[in-house]
């Protein structure tokens, strides 16, 4: 098992584009000075980030560090203000309604819990973007949907309803739906959460396959350190709404920053909590 993971990792290391190679590529995501608050509570602080073409960027961080909030900004579910977000070279804040719709056709998103439409079969789910956003014939849509289901190892399961799927199948189905329009950029929220190691490792392979075969740039939000090492070109670590580090895997792994190491090795930081403060919190005021 360890051996296998190691070799898989080694293979990916070999495939991994070099630092210079990546730096020379076009930016598909640019985030400039993004702040965000929920009411009085600020959850994102001056986020600056870029993702390059064909790159796999893994965003990590503890629970509540703002990963999902950042992702929701990136995919246009939250306004990119104040600050600026460019996707595929387009400034999201400055687009007309029509241009924004056009941009959304070129990105794919797989949500943490799948967000499959529970009233439609898996293949209807995958076909939905085609049905609603293109003028393709039914037969063509079927072919395209089946192709994507096959890529995600779901051929033969298209007729099932989402409620009949296992956790891993659900994630793969939502990835199939995310890639059905052949996007240049996909976002995956916690693809491996709630899955056993074998299934989540298969999912990592799928993500690598997508990048290599379809030349897609991938942004993955993840808690899973092993998986991040395996698939990432670069890792960004969020901590309390701030970017702690955003660098190549080796650099992050060997970072001298204590907080980075704590997060990677899942060491708790309880020592930082003042005992009286803790008691006060327990007492509830």
């Amino acid at each position: 098992m360890t051996n296998q993971t190691l070799t898989a990792e080694a293979v990916n290391q070999a495939n991994r584009p070099s630092a210079e190679d990546i730096a020379a590529r076009r930016k598909v995501i640019e985030v400039d000075h993004l702040d965000w608050s929920f009411g009085p509570r600020q959850v994102l602080f001056d986020i600056n980030l870029d993702v390059r073409e064909g790159e796999i960027m893994v965003i990590m961080g503890g629970s509540g560090s703002g990963k999902t909030t950042l992702l929701r900004h990136l995919v246009g579910l939250m306004p990119p203000l104040p600050g600026k977000i460019k996707l595929l070279g387009k400034d999201m804040g400055a687009l007309s309604r029509m241009q924004l719709l056009d941009l959304k056709r070129r990105i794919g998103v797989a949500f943490q819990f799948g967000a499959l439409f529970s009233s439609m079969s898996v293949s209807e789910n995958v076909k939905l973007p085609l049905r609603e956003l293109t003028d393709l014939e039914e037969r063509t849509m079927d072919i395209m949907a089946n192709m994507k289901l096959e890529v995600c190892n779901l051929s033969g399961f298209g007729h099932l309803m989402p409620s009949d799927l296992s956790g891993g199948m659900m994630k793969r189905a939502s990835i199939a739906r995310a890639i059905v329009m052949d996007p240049k950029l996909i976002f995956l929220d916690e693809p491996s959460s709630g899955l056993d190691p074998v299934v989540s490792s298969a999912l990592d392979d799928l993500i690598l396959k997508l990048r290599d075969a379809m030349d897609i740039s991938v942004v993955v939000v993840s808690h899973d350190v092993e998986s991040a090492y395996k698939i990432a070109d670069r890792i960004t670590i969020l901590d309390k709404g701030q970017i702690l580090i955003s660098d190549r895997v080796d650099a992050v792994r060997n970072s001298a920053n204590e907080r980075v190491q704590n997060l990677l090795h899942r060491r708790s930081e309880q020592a930082e909590i003042d005992p009286t403060e803790y008691l006060r919190r327990l007492a509830g005021d």
């Binding site: 929701r72 995919v75 246009g76 579910l77 924004l100 719709l101 056009d102 941009l103 959304k104 056709r105 990105i107 998103v109 949500f111 943490q112 819990f113 967000a115 499959l116 439409f117 529970s118 939905l128 973007p129 609603e132 956003l133």
Partner: peptide, 18 residues
């Protein structure tokens, strides 16, 4: 309500389906 909770409405939005 069920669709909102399952994030199905968000999914529509990011697909560019109003």
């Amino acid at each position: 309500a069920t669709m909102s909770i399952n994030q199905e409405v968000d999914a529509l939005q990011v697909m560019g389906i109003n």
